[in-house]
């Protein structure tokens, strides 16, 4: 599905991601675990094209998208939910979702979005900036989902969210994967969330993967020790 080969990325002359290679399989939820500053956000920004890759290749369903502008990657099938959600604060909830309809050119928000996130229907006319953190996270996922992606990239979806909502988001991700048949790459620091949501785990440190485990043989203590400061 999404294949990354020898990816190098960073800021200016500073290299953060160093020669990273991995594959996200079809219908898989892959958790990228790591402490702050280890390269999770840099990896996600370079995948969606907000940071240029210094080298390597990103291919989606066999199509090399490395040189594509960000908006073209969305047309190819990538969707991005950034860290901090980046809701458009002065647009209404419905308008926020409608921006995601740029690719499909649909006029109306698909009904399944409101089936998954009923609160967004109730708050359709409210400004995005006036929602709670949890509601904004749902809006950010809904907005990415309406682009009809093949791969959904989520950067720390639990950041600033209360524990009861975190469990709900894990369930929603699995529901989306099953309903839409898409693959999900999620960056996280909260182990309980990842154990709830992910099929496979990798741990990133200084821009490289230092540990990988499938759900069947994951050792939570090992990951916890790798995430400890």
């Amino acid at each position: 599905m999404l294949t990354i080969s020898n990816l190098k990325a960073g800021y200016g002359e500073s290299s953060v991601i160093k020669d990273l290679s991995f594959t996200l399989k079809e219908n898989e939820i892959l958790g990228v675990m790591g402490r702050n500053g280890m390269g999770k956000t840099t990896l996600f920004k370079s995948l969606i094209g907000l940071l240029p890759a210094f080298g390597g290749e990103i291919s989606l369903d066999g199509e090399d998208i490395t040189s594509y502008a960000t908006y073209k990657r969305v047309y190819s099938g990538l969707a991005y939910v950034p860290q901090g959600r980046m809701i458009f604060p002065n647009l209404t909830v419905t308008e926020n979702i409608k921006i995601g309809l740029e690719k499909t050119k649909a006029k109306k928000v698909p009904d399944y979005i409101y089936d998954i996130f009923p609160v967004l229907k109730e708050m359709g006319h409210r400004k995005g900036g006036n929602l709670s953190g949890g509601q904004q996270q749902q809006l950010a996922i809904a907005r990415a989902l309406v682009t009809e992606p093949k791969v959904l990239l989520l950067d720390e979806p639990t950041e600033g969210i209360q524990p009861s909502i975190i469990k709900e988001i894990a369930q929603i991700l699995k529901q989306i994967r099953d309903m839409k048949g898409i693959s999900i790459l999620v960056a996280e620091q909260v182990l309980s969330f990842s154990l709830d949501a992910c099929d496979r785990f990798v741990v990133i440190e200084s821009g490289d993967f230092i540990h990988e485990a499938d759900r069947a043989d994951v050792d939570p203590d090992k990951i916890k020790s790798l995430l400890a400061v």
Binding site: T70, Y71, G100
Partner: peptide, 24 residues
């Protein structure tokens, strides 16, 4: 209009607008 929505979203957050498929 869709153009108006593009204008308003791009003005608020250019990066996020691109990441939702808008040619900013």
């Amino acid at each position: 209009t869709r153009w108006g929505l593009r204008m308003r979203s791009t003005s608020q957050n250019r990066d996020m607008s691109q990441a939702l498929g808008i040619n900013t």
